[in-house]
Each structure stands twice: as structure tokens, then as C-alpha cells.
Simulated scan of single mutants.
Amino acid sequence: MLAVSGASGHLGGLILRHLLGWVDASRVVALSRTPDRVPDLGIRTRAADFAAPDGLVRALDGVERLLLVSVDAITGRAPLHAAAIKAATKAGVGHIIYTSTTRAGDPGNPSAVAPDHHETERLLAASVPAFTSLRFNIWPETLTYMGIAQRAVAAGELPSNAGDGRVAYLTRDDSAAVAAAVLAEGGSKGELLEITGPAAVSDADLAAILAETSGRPVRHVPVAEAAPRLTAMGTPAPPAQAWAGGLAWGLKGI
């Protein structure tokens, strides 16, 4: 049996849809703290909460491979991931596929999300029979749900301190397609897979794209400290700091 955690979330729901292109629904179980919110795709659902490990062990009964979708938080998720890994090991899960971030283990990675992902990868390597880490590059949707794109259009400028760095953005749907394929096939054991989009773009390119799609002028403004400028534009501190810190290492010189 194949299981997907976080199945009621945006990524989890997309993964389930792609997974049904690979395997029959009878082989899949959707895990969620809110099983009533899982998309109705003919897949069985089980309540599963990383903060309640005993119930999680029961939810993982009979699961051969688990797609562990990382908790949606900038920091503080490693303990929850550790609990999920421990429960999966106790339940006899043979292979865990984990949704990580680009260059999670690189020394000096400035991204605030990298340490938790790196710690989770370390735990997987030390604890489970087999694992695969899917190190997804940045989703372009991130710019929207953090409010960076909207505020750039409203202000007419996109400030950043990335210099000439470029990012091969990868859509959330493409990430889900990759995750579903690896889960279905069960390959790439023991691998840290860097998964990127088809083309690397700069922040100047992003500003031009925002201008084209919005029909309003948006210019790229290189600055030494992007976070204060973003907060002055109305961006909350955590997203501003995440953008200024690179969101992921990819913004710092690919």
C-alpha cells in the first residue's frame, strides 16, 4: 500500500491526483489531520497527526511506501517529522519519500527552511530502511502566497539582494507529478534528488514577468538589504525575511 501524508493540503491533493495516473485507487491511502477535507477521488482516508504518534502508527498499518509531505512551517517542523519517522519505522514502512528543499544540506545555506529539512534528511538516513529526498526548487506560487508579487505590482518595484543569481523555478503541480512518480515506482532509494524547473530566471526577469502579466510597470531594484524595503511596502516580516534570505539557496547564485 502507498500512503500520502498531508493529503488535504495543496501539494498532497495534487500528488493524489497524479498518483492515480500510476496506480489503482485501491492501493492508496490518504493521511490527514482533517480527513474530511481530502479530495474525493475514491481513495480511502485515515486520520493521522504527527503530534499523535500512537494514532499515526495505526494509520500507517499495511503501508509499504510513505510520501512524507513536510509540515507547512518556516521553522520548528523537525520534531514533528521525527515523530512521523519514528511512527513509520514502528509500523514497518519500508521506504519513505520526503519533500525537502533545494540544497538542504549545503553548509552556509541562508534559507530559514533549510535546517529543518536537513535535520529530517539526517533522521531518515539514520532511521529507516530506505528513503528518498525530493529537494524541490522554489515554487513560483510562493511569490503569490507570501504576497511578494502583489506588493511588487502595487509598488511598481521588486526589491531583492540576489544580485545576478538565478532560480530554476518549479511549479507545485510539477513537484507533485515528480513525487507521485517516485512513490509509485519506489526507485531512487538513498538518493537526494535536486529537482528544478526548465529554465533559470533572475529577479529582473521576474519583475518583467510581473509587469507583463499585470499590465503595470514593475522594475527590479537591487538593494543590499531587501527585507526593510519589503516591510516598508507592507510585506509581513517573515515573508520579507524569507525573500531577503533567498527563500532557498537557489536565489544566491545558481
Rank of each mutant, 00 (worst) to 15 (best):
L210I: 01
L16N: 05
R33M: 09
V57Q: 10
Y169R: 05
A211V: 01
H118K: 14
I254S: 15
A154M: 02
S26G: 14
A176K: 02
L31I: 05
A179P: 03
G245S: 12
V167A: 06
S202P: 01
D203W: 12
P239W: 08
G12N: 09
R229N: 00
P198Y: 10
P222V: 01
S8E: 12
T144D: 14
L66E: 05
L19T: 08
E119G: 02
V218Q: 00
V63R: 13
A59K: 08
R166G: 06
A240Y: 11
E225H: 12
G245Q: 09
T196F: 09
S5A: 13
P140E: 09
D174K: 11
I138C: 08
A232E: 13
L60T: 02
A180N: 03
A204V: 00
L183F: 05
R166W: 02
G165Y: 07
I74T: 12
D203T: 06
I195Y: 11
S188H: 15
G215A: 03
A240V: 01
G42V: 09
W243F: 15
D40A: 15
A82W: 05
L192Y: 14
V182K: 03
A91I: 04
R135F: 07
A168H: 10
A180W: 03
S32H: 11
V28F: 13
D54N: 12
I43R: 08
A242Q: 14
E194N: 12
L16I: 02
L31R: 09
A112H: 13
